[in-house]
Design a protein around this nucleic acid. Structure first.
Lengths: 220, 220
DNA sequence: AAGTGGTCTAGACCACACC
DNA sequence: GTGTGGTCTAGACCACTTA
C-alpha cells in the first residue's frame, strides 16, 4: 500500500469514526508533513482527493474542514422517512422491533408509522468495524437511517428496487393482507470502497412512490 | 485557468469529439511533457484524474487508452429491454398490441417477451408535435423505446416507481394471477423543456429489479 | 529486458483570504 | 502583511507488464 493511500485511510478513519466531527479543522498540510514525515506534495494529494470525494472542504488561509454528511441522495430522491411522513402532515412514530449482533454487524429491525398506521418496515445492517460508534447509539430512540444520515458521510450508494408480495412477518408488521404488493428498496452504502450499511425497506405498494429525476450527464 | 486544467480540457476535447475513439492510445506521459512543455507530475496529474473519471484506462508498459462510453444512463440503470433480455440469454420477442392517436399524441400498447414468456407490458405516449418523424415509423417492427433511445436525444427524465397489483388487462397480458405484485415504472422524458414521451411499463415483480448506483456528487 | 505508469522528494512561486 | 492551499518543477527510484 502506497504512502498516500495509508495517509488517506488514516485520515478517513478519523472522519468516519466521528473523532473528527463535521466542521472540525484537519491539521494543516505542514503539520501532516511533519507527522507523517513526507513531502508536502504527498499530503496535498491526499487532501485533494478527500476534497474531490466530498469528505472535506478546503479553504485558503483557513484550512481544511470535515464536511457535513449529505442530507439525502440527490439523484434518487429517497428522503428521510421521518421528513417524508411529516411532509404529509401525519404524525411520525418509530419502533425498534429487534436488535442483535452478527459478528461485526449490528442487525436491526424497525418500523415507521404515520398517524399510528404502519408506513414502512425496515431491516438494517450496520458494519461496526467501520462505524464503531454505532454500537453506542440507542436505536430505540432514533431510527438508524436518520442517525446514519446525519452522522456518517458516504461516497457511493446502490439502490435495488423491486416489487414483492408481503408475506408472513412483513404482512403482519405492515398490517396488510398476505400477498399484497410492496415496494422493496434495498440500499447499500459505501465509503471509499468499504461497506457501511445495508438496508431493506418495505413500503405498502399503494402508499408509496419513488421519484428519480436526472439528466444523461448525471446531474439531477 | 491552471496548466493541468487546460491540458485536461484539451485531452477531453480530443476524446469527446471522437477524434480519439475508444481504444485509441493516448500519447505517453513523456510525449505529453514535451508537447505541453511541462513537468511529468503535471501530465501525470491530468491522466490520473481522467482515469479516475473513467474516461481513460491506464496500463503499465502499455500506455493510456480511451475507454468505451457508458451505454446507458449510469444513474438509474434502465437498459433497453431488448438488451436486458438478451443479457439473460433469452430470446427476445416484441408485439405491438394497439396503436392510435390522441390529438398530437401517438398512443401505443405493446408487450415484450423473453423466450415467449411475457416480460413487460408497456403503455407509451409520444408527442408527435415534437417528434413528427415518429409518425412514419412502423412500431410493429421496432419497439418504440428502442427507436426513441437510438434516434431522439433527451436532456431530462423523471422516473416514478411504484408497486401495484396487476389487475384485469395487465394481468392477462403478463399472464399473471390477478393481484400479483408488479413493479411499475413511469418515465417522462423532456428535451429542452418540451415533453417528448411518456411511458408506463409493468414488470412482474418477481422477475425484475431496478438498480441505481451513484455518488452524492452525481457521478455513477 | 525494457519501457511504462506509480510514487515520492525538496524545493519554489503564486493567488487568495483573512487580519 | 501573513499564512494557507494551489500549482509546478526537475529530478529519482520502483513495480509491474508486456514484448
Amino acid at each position: 500500500m502506497s504512502l498516500h493511500q495509508r495517509i488517506r485511510a488514516d485520515l478517513e478513519a478519523h472522519i468516519l469514526s466521528g473523532e473528527w466531527p463535521p466542521g472540525h479543522r484537519i491539521p494543516f498540510e505542514h503539520e501532516l508533513m511533519a507527522h507523517y514525515g513526507c513531502a508536502r506534495m504527498t499530503v496535498n494529494k491526499v487532501l485533494s482527493s478527500l476534497a474531490a470525494a466530498g469528505l472535506i472542504e478546503r479553504r485558503r488561509k483557513a484550512g481544511s474542514f470535515v464536511r457535513r454528511p449529505f442530507e439525502q441522495a440527490a439523484v434518487l430522491e429517497i428522503p428521510d422517512i421521518k421528513a417524508q411522513i411529516a411532509a404529509r402532515g401525519a404524525a411520525y412514530r418509530y419502533q425498534l422491533l429487534d436488535s442483535g449482533r452478527d459478528g461485526e454487524v449490528l442487525v436491526l429491525e424497525c418500523r415507521h408509522l404515520a398517524d399510528d398506521a404502519p408506513f414502512a418496515y425496515e431491516q438494517r445492517r450496520i458494519q461496526l468495524d467501520v462505524i464503531p460508534q454505532a454500537a453506542e447509539i440507542d436505536f430505540s430512540e432514533e431510527a438508524p437511517g436518520s442517525w446514519l444520515l446525519h452522522n456518517v458521510p458516504w461516497h457511493e450508494a446502490e439502490h435495488r428496487i423491486s416489487a414483492k408480495p408481503a408475506l408472513d412477518m412483513v404482512a403482519a408488521q405492515l398490517d396488510l393482507p398476505s400477498g399484497s404488493p410492496c415496494l422493496v428498496v434495498e440500499r447499500r452504502t459505501w465509503s471509499s470502497g468499504k461497506l457501511l450499511t445495508q438496508v431493506r425497506i418495505w413500503y405498502p405498494g399503494e402508499s408509496n412512490e419513488l421519484v428519480a429525476k436526472f439528466t444523461p450527464s448525471g446531474r439531477g
